[in-house]
Amino acid sequence: MSEPTVKRFMYINRRAPYGTVYSVEGLEVALIGAAFEQDVCMAFIDDGVYQLKKDQDTSATGIKNFSPAYRALGDYDVTRLYVEGESLQARGLTEDDLMALTYEDEDDDWAEKPSIRLVSREELSGLIDQQDVILHF
Protein backbone atom coordinates (compact mmCIF):
# COMPACT_ATOMS: atom_id res chain seq x y z
CA MET A 1 0.00 0.00 0.00
CA SER A 2 1.30 3.41 -0.91
CA GLU A 3 0.97 6.28 1.53
CA PRO A 4 -2.18 8.32 1.07
CA THR A 5 -1.58 11.56 -0.79
CA VAL A 6 -1.40 14.62 1.43
CA LYS A 7 -1.45 17.89 -0.40
CA ARG A 8 -1.20 21.43 0.89
CA PHE A 9 -4.57 23.14 0.43
CA MET A 10 -5.11 26.84 0.98
CA TYR A 11 -8.52 28.49 0.90
CA ILE A 12 -8.15 32.19 0.19
CA ASN A 13 -11.05 34.31 1.37
CA ARG A 14 -11.09 37.82 -0.03
CA ARG A 15 -14.72 38.90 0.08
CA ALA A 16 -16.95 40.37 2.76
CA PRO A 17 -19.00 37.75 4.63
CA TYR A 18 -22.34 39.12 3.43
CA GLY A 19 -23.48 40.66 0.17
CA THR A 20 -22.58 37.57 -1.87
CA VAL A 21 -22.67 33.84 -1.16
CA TYR A 22 -18.98 33.18 -1.78
CA SER A 23 -17.82 33.42 1.84
CA VAL A 24 -20.37 31.09 3.38
CA GLU A 25 -20.03 28.54 0.58
CA GLY A 26 -16.25 28.85 0.86
CA LEU A 27 -16.41 28.02 4.56
CA GLU A 28 -18.48 24.95 3.67
CA VAL A 29 -15.63 23.75 1.45
CA ALA A 30 -13.11 24.19 4.28
CA LEU A 31 -15.30 22.28 6.74
CA ILE A 32 -16.12 19.41 4.36
CA GLY A 33 -12.56 19.29 3.07
CA ALA A 34 -11.24 18.77 6.59
CA ALA A 35 -12.51 15.18 6.48
CA PHE A 36 -9.93 14.35 3.79
CA GLU A 37 -6.95 14.75 6.13
CA GLN A 38 -5.03 17.09 3.90
CA ASP A 39 -2.68 19.84 5.05
CA VAL A 40 -5.19 22.69 5.13
CA CYS A 41 -4.88 26.38 5.91
CA MET A 42 -6.96 29.45 5.19
CA ALA A 43 -5.98 32.97 4.28
CA PHE A 44 -8.02 36.14 4.74
CA ILE A 45 -7.19 39.13 2.58
CA ASP A 46 -8.90 42.29 1.33
CA ASP A 47 -12.55 42.43 2.51
CA GLY A 48 -12.16 38.76 3.51
CA VAL A 49 -10.78 39.94 6.87
CA TYR A 50 -14.32 41.07 7.75
CA GLN A 51 -15.34 37.39 7.83
CA LEU A 52 -13.46 37.04 11.13
CA LYS A 53 -14.85 40.22 12.71
CA LYS A 54 -16.30 39.57 16.15
CA ASP A 55 -19.82 40.56 17.20
CA GLN A 56 -21.36 40.17 13.76
CA ASP A 57 -25.07 40.96 13.78
CA THR A 58 -27.14 40.32 10.68
CA SER A 59 -30.54 40.49 12.37
CA ALA A 60 -31.69 43.51 10.38
CA THR A 61 -30.94 41.83 7.05
CA GLY A 62 -32.80 38.53 7.36
CA ILE A 63 -29.58 36.76 6.37
CA LYS A 64 -28.16 34.11 8.66
CA ASN A 65 -25.13 35.10 10.73
CA PHE A 66 -22.82 32.21 9.90
CA SER A 67 -19.78 33.55 11.77
CA PRO A 68 -20.16 31.09 14.71
CA ALA A 69 -19.28 28.31 12.24
CA TYR A 70 -15.68 29.58 12.06
CA ARG A 71 -15.32 28.40 15.65
CA ALA A 72 -15.73 24.82 14.42
CA LEU A 73 -12.60 25.01 12.26
CA GLY A 74 -10.27 24.25 15.17
CA ASP A 75 -12.19 21.05 15.96
CA TYR A 76 -11.82 20.07 12.28
CA ASP A 77 -8.02 20.47 12.47
CA VAL A 78 -8.06 23.64 10.41
CA THR A 79 -5.73 25.43 12.79
CA ARG A 80 -3.92 27.98 10.63
CA LEU A 81 -5.94 31.04 9.65
CA TYR A 82 -3.58 33.58 8.13
CA VAL A 83 -4.83 37.14 8.24
CA GLU A 84 -3.01 39.71 6.16
CA GLY A 85 -1.99 42.66 8.32
CA GLU A 86 -2.10 45.18 5.49
CA SER A 87 -5.74 44.30 4.75
CA LEU A 88 -6.67 44.75 8.42
CA GLN A 89 -4.85 48.05 8.65
CA ALA A 90 -6.42 49.42 5.47
CA ARG A 91 -9.84 48.82 7.05
CA GLY A 92 -9.01 50.37 10.42
CA LEU A 93 -9.06 46.98 12.12
CA THR A 94 -6.67 45.27 14.51
CA GLU A 95 -6.43 41.68 15.71
CA ASP A 96 -8.52 42.71 18.74
CA ASP A 97 -11.49 43.26 16.41
CA LEU A 98 -11.42 39.61 15.32
CA MET A 99 -13.01 36.55 16.89
CA ALA A 100 -10.70 34.73 19.31
CA LEU A 101 -10.56 31.49 17.32
CA THR A 102 -8.58 28.70 18.92
CA TYR A 103 -7.64 25.05 18.54
CA GLU A 104 -6.33 22.41 20.91
CA ASP A 105 -2.77 21.37 20.05
CA GLU A 106 -2.58 17.58 20.28
CA ASP A 107 1.25 17.77 20.19
CA ASP A 108 1.31 20.04 23.24
CA ASP A 109 -0.95 18.29 25.76
CA TRP A 110 -4.06 19.76 24.06
CA ALA A 111 -3.10 23.30 25.02
CA GLU A 112 -5.51 25.87 23.64
CA LYS A 113 -3.79 28.05 21.06
CA PRO A 114 -4.89 30.86 18.77
CA SER A 115 -5.72 29.85 15.19
CA ILE A 116 -5.44 33.36 13.80
CA ARG A 117 -1.94 34.24 12.65
CA LEU A 118 -1.26 37.78 11.56
CA VAL A 119 1.07 37.82 8.56
CA SER A 120 2.42 40.48 6.26
CA ARG A 121 1.56 40.55 2.57
CA GLU A 122 5.10 39.39 1.82
CA GLU A 123 4.85 36.46 4.25
CA LEU A 124 1.49 35.45 2.79
CA SER A 125 2.96 35.55 -0.69
CA GLY A 126 5.59 33.05 0.46
CA LEU A 127 2.92 30.80 2.00
CA ILE A 128 0.88 30.85 -1.21
CA ASP A 129 3.99 29.72 -3.09
CA GLN A 130 4.19 26.61 -0.88
CA GLN A 131 0.68 25.34 -1.67
CA ASP A 132 -0.35 22.51 -3.99
CA VAL A 133 -4.02 23.46 -4.31
CA ILE A 134 -5.50 26.93 -3.92
CA LEU A 135 -9.19 27.74 -3.99
CA HIS A 136 -10.42 31.28 -3.60
CA PHE A 137 -13.78 32.51 -2.45
Binding site: T5, K7, F9, V29, I32, G33, F36, Q38, L135, H136
Partner: peptide, 18 residues
Protein backbone atom coordinates in the same frame (compact mmCIF):
# COMPACT_ATOMS: atom_id res chain seq x y z
CA UNK B 1 -22.79 15.01 -5.63
CA UNK B 2 -21.06 16.47 -2.59
CA UNK B 3 -18.22 18.89 -1.98
CA UNK B 4 -15.95 15.94 -1.30
CA UNK B 5 -15.80 15.52 -5.06
CA UNK B 6 -14.07 18.90 -5.30
CA UNK B 7 -11.51 18.04 -2.64
CA UNK B 8 -10.89 14.66 -4.26
CA UNK B 9 -10.35 16.42 -7.59
CA UNK B 10 -7.77 18.67 -5.91
CA UNK B 11 -5.97 15.64 -4.53
CA UNK B 12 -6.08 13.52 -7.70
CA UNK B 13 -5.36 16.12 -10.38
CA UNK B 14 -1.95 17.59 -11.17
CA UNK B 15 -3.60 21.01 -11.42
CA UNK B 16 -6.93 22.30 -10.15
CA UNK B 17 -8.06 25.34 -12.12
CA UNK B 18 -10.79 27.64 -10.86
Amino acid sequence: SGLGQLIEAGIEADRLLQ
